[in-house]
Design a protein around this nucleic acid. Structure first.
Lengths: 403, 403
DNA sequence: TGATATTTTTAAAATAATTTATTAATAGAA
DNA sequence: TTCTATTAATAAATTATTTTAAAAATATCA
């Protein structure tokens, strides 16, 4: 064994317990000393001492007193708002969002940028202005950044930060990860956008407390997020959950990935619009025929469907049916208790979930669908932001030492 | 907080540490005090004391001395062979095996029974004789049974022990689980056979040390086992990994599950035999034509294929191709680093793995197959037995208190 | 309104664990 | 062979943590 400990066992244990307290509070909000003691397998006096230390270090504070059916009411402790902050960078093919959160999910600052993700060095260059701006604001408000998270599409390896889909973001001279580390001088964590979304749903949305959940994101493509045993399914290199490129039609359309008949080509938001336009060209009756052909987009199609337009409803049915067929494979493989639908198409609500349900009824064995619930996200676009932040907090508390 | 602890915190910690030591030894074999101290985040004197206690309780013993490049050689401690025993009951559609293991994977006793699983009360009745026999042997050899594991096909909920496929095994008056508990007077754990197999591969086979692995069992049907992050993927009710009943052909054959075009109908061992017989009826040239038509089974087909028979090779190619197509979906969803092929068809070795590889190359995105290895199991039928035992040991050390 | 039962919190005592120091064992060098 | 450097195991000293006990707080009941 080593001649001398660089960090003593006692110190390590203390650090683990402290991080355990912070984890509990981040996940469950305000906690009593007794609750923490039970969760951490420690005694109340020990926890009291640790809480005192965390309080003097400005991590936690007393929030108030909790309920008790009898006897003395316990003091509640929770994370101190506004003190430690996380920068969340949400990069999508539509735009970029820069959001500063504290550990209680409060938005301390936010900057939305009209910048489309492309696989180019120019994109990274365009990002510098907004990064400059938000880091300026951070200085101005004297915020203490402890970590940075970035959600983005593509095959992202969370261990290395390499994006295998958008390869230009990995240049060794200046990668996206390095860029973010430079501006915020903090640990940077990259995560695939769909995985961030389901993590958000699991920690703060409809999936809270559920251990086996799927989340499907219908946008430009189709993204699947999986919660297994309460944790994101990543696979070896973070690629797990790639449902968009499984083949559903052997003689189908050519996909951007180079293969044929991928789910993506059949059920994405863009596929829905394409179907609508094709239907109109064929002369099908629809209120959408009154619109300027070029202006027809997903939102419009969904609006008309909600207003009762037959063509729009039919095509949502079609898309939902195909999607449900693909999802039923995922149901057989993951045996979830809940499926959450998100992305632009989620706004169609029951008009999209119902055909999905029907397809799952058709293609899944009964035991798999008996207790299965399908629902539309309530967090919407916030799920991804919360999830990215949760991922950073989780990673920090897992791997890094806190001061 | 509770007025008085029924079990003190100190005792709980001690129990956790002791179980931690046993876990380490079960997984990694003999260990030094320093290794254990590091793994358990405890000091060497503490571990020394715990090891002393476990030794007097007959759980562990000194095995010998380990290597050291310099200095004093460390003492090695390991699980004491022959003392604690696990009963493994392996139920398949072919036969039933009853095996008694100690914690070092030594077979202390074994009884193979020619008994076919069917969904009937009669099956449970037929099981009583062999159970009587093996429990008699256990008494005779004075073995100390600490747990029972049972691997069997079907949708098995490990939390409740209910088998949703073979429903007659769940009768509340006398379920399979109750029967086993009665004969061995120990905790009983049921697990799906394919999940047991991959657990065996992960703990003691080619998947050891790999965190993301698929195992495919080609037998009567096709079973998929998944290791994610080093643990079996179970899903909500233990049904996860059901690859056999995803639809590959919309206009395919009717499956036993009531659906159409399931993978099971295309790629199982029985499907291979059916294809061979159909080929022979069509008059295709093959050494197999010399055989008695009724005697043609999987083993024979594989033997002939290995001897170069064209028909057999072609059809193995066909089956492997279909299987690879189905597996490529699983590869996209789980992003594994290794796929292990097991079951009767695995004996065909490269004749089955090669077409699988080809299909995966065709249907998977490059990033998913770059580091992916496909191989045939080396443990063979032992994987399932080891895995079942590992599942029992793991469950006992996780949930139960040890004396 | 006061007493009682219940629960939380703090303080003191008892116990348990780590740390430091010492002794034991071993490979390689002189 | 003896010495030295290195690692392991044990013993003693020190520090942490739990346990027990006592005090503080509060809802219910008489």
């Amino acid at each position: 064994m080593e001649a001398n400990y660089t960090v003593s066992i006692v110190d390590k244990k203390k650090s683990r317990l402290k991080r355990g307290i912070l984890k509990e509070m981040y996940r469950l909000g305000s906690r009593t000393l007794a609750q923490l003691a039970k969760a951490l397998h420690a005694s109340v006096p020990s926890v009291t001492m640790l809480i005192d230390e965390l309080a003097t270090e400005h991590w936690v504070q007393e929030i108030g007193t909790g309920a008790a059916q009898y006897g003395r009411k316990p003091a509640l402790f929770g994370l101190r708002p506004g003190n430690q902050a996380i920068v969340v960078v949400d990069i999508s093919v539509h735009d970029v969002k820069l959001v500063v959160f504290d550990l209680t999910n409060r938005v301390l600052n936010r900057l939305d940028v009209n910048l489309r993700l492309e696989d180019s060095v120019a994109f990274l260059e365009s990002l510098k202005g907004p990064l400059e701006e938000i880091s300026h604001r951070i200085q101005e408000h004297n915020l203490n950044i402890i970590g940075v998270g970035c959600a983005l599409p593509g095959l992202v390896d969370p261990r290395t930060g390499i994006n295998y889909t958008y390869k230009k973001l990995n240049r060794p001279e200046q990668s996206l990860q390095q860029l973010l580390a430079h501006y915020f001088d903090s640990p940077v964590y990259l995560i695939n956008d769909t995985k961030a979304t389901i993590l958000g749903e699991h920690r703060f949305g409809l999936a809270k407390g559920k251990n086996h959940v799927l989340s499907i994101n219908i946008d430009w493509g189709v993204g699947l997020g999986v919660i297994n045993n309460g944790e994101i399914l990543q696979g070896l290199a973070g690629f797990a959950g790639e449902l968009g490129h499984i083949q559903l039609q052997a003689d189908g359309e050519l996909c951007s990935c180079g293969k044929v008949g991928c789910l993506d080509t059949l059920t994405s938001a863009s596929s829905l619009v394409r179907r609508v336009k094709a239907g109109l060209r064929e002369g099908r009756v629809s209120k959408l025929a009154e619109e300027n052909f070029e202006d027809i987009d997903v939102e419009l199609v969904i609006d008309k469907a909600k207003a009762g337009d037959e063509l729009a409803i039919d095509l949502l049915n079609e898309v939902g049916g195909e999607l449900g067929k693909g999802l039923s494979i995922a149901v057989h493989l993951f045996n979830p208790e809940l499926i959450i639908v998100n992305g632009v198409v989620a706004k169609a609500e029951r008009l999209i979930t119902r055909p999905i349900e029907q397809a799952i009824d058709k293609y899944c064995l009964a035991d798999f669908r008996n207790k299965l619930v399908i629902t539309v996200s309530r967090l919407g676009e916030m799920a991804k932001l919360y999830g990215t932040q949760a991922y950073v907090v989780q990673s920090l508390l897992e791997h890094e030492e806190i001061p």
